[in-house]
Design a protein around this nucleic acid. Structure first.
Lengths: 203, 203
DNA sequence: ACAGAAATTGAACGAGTGTTCAGTTTAAAC
DNA sequence: GTTTAAACTGAACACTCGTTCAATTTCTGT
């Protein structure tokens, strides 16, 4: 059972070079997208030789998968920790969560650039698919648990699961649109639109 | 001024091979994603030699951009045409539009696979960025025009532009989540969630 | 029927790809 | 201090990549 209050644990990382490679992968993907997804560019950035990638990771896809999991859980945990302050007040908790999400480093085109690579590799690389399901599941379950709590205080006109799916879609959609075209609206608008959704759902 | 009622015109396509190449590109990207984005795979699929790509297109990025525009406008036009039946009744028009969107060929993982390639190439290929802005602009402006009409009949508790941005985000987000993990919910749920949003906005 | 233009071919080029592995360095254990 | 294992190197290999271009075919107009 996933714990909805405490941060999801990051997989322990053994050895220094392994972590350096993961961080270099993220930097490279955020800077150059798919073009940055090459053993040579990544190992260069990590200050390490090409061969080390396949020594520490079964393939470059496994490295990218590790980077995906690392990034996703880092972001999710930060938001969860911040919002945990209001764990007794689910409605307030949602507001804090939204503030955190839309004002964090996630709202960067370079982050989406990396994410597009992750998504694009999902069905050619099983380890990446696994990383996706893990991080996505954690995100949705976290939101659903908050809506579950909210349902115990006020009546919802949608099942908590649906409310969570809707909010997830709204968050992802706004993040996507904003990153792809930063001049159409602002992060503050994102928060307002999500708040409107939450209010519409919990009456 | 963009016409919100009539379909956006597709750029005329001269020559048979050019169109064959565009269609082959779409098939290739939908089947294999980024891996399918290669001159050789595409020209093979089109039954044509490698050299012809650079004869008809300045670069492979221009070909991909043409494919992007072709696909985006095809989908958008189909939905706009269908919804045009109810152009006097904006609320109904939105419902038909949603039905059309979430029950069309857009709801396929293979379509997202192609789209991820388009998005991933946006800032390494200017022609793709142009195609993105054109299709995205057409989509948003169409929705906003409907909300404008809706605002003349009933009071909205959000500016039409915001309502449109919210709906666009909800549509894109649901499409994205569903394509990435088809077993979490169904197209019918997508429609219901979007309808909930529209109802929440127009009181 | 013929000339000129447009369309199409595919070998060639240089650069980039992921992975392997014999060889070297560094660290840990006793 | 010596031995054994782990970490790390980088040249080499077999592809694949996008683009070019001389040569060839097909189409157009007269």
């Amino acid at each position: 059972m996933a714990n909805n209050r405490n941060p999801v644990e990051l997989q322990p990382i053994y050895g220094k070079a392994k972590l350096k490679l993961i961080e270099a992968t993220l930097e490279s993907l955020m800077d150059e997208g798919m073009q940055g997804c090459s053993v040579r560019k990544i190992s260069d950035r990590a200050g390490v030789s090409v061969g080390l990638v396949n020594y520490h990771f079964e393939s470059i896809h496994h490295l990218v998968a590790a980077a995906y999991g690392h990034l996703a859980l880092t972001f999710l945990n930060r938001a969860i920790e911040t919002a945990a302050t209001y764990k007794e007040h689910p409605r307030k908790q949602l507001s804090v969560f939204l503030q955190e999400i839309f004002h964090s480093e996630v709202m960067q085109r370079r982050v989406l650039r990396a994410w597009l690579v992750f998504w694009g590799l999902i069905d050619s690389a099983p380890p990446i698919q696994a990383a996706h399901q893990a991080s996505n599941g954690a995100f949705t379950q976290y939101l659903q648990s908050i809506f579950d709590n909210l349902a115990q205080q006020t009546k919802l006109n949608l099942p908590p699961k649906m409310a969570a799916i809707g909010l997830t879609a709204m968050i992802d959609g706004l993040w996507l649109e904003w990153c792809l075209q930063t001049d159409a609206f602002e992060p503050a608008d994102c928060i307002q639109l999500c708040e409107t959704w939450v209010d519409a759902v919990h009456q």
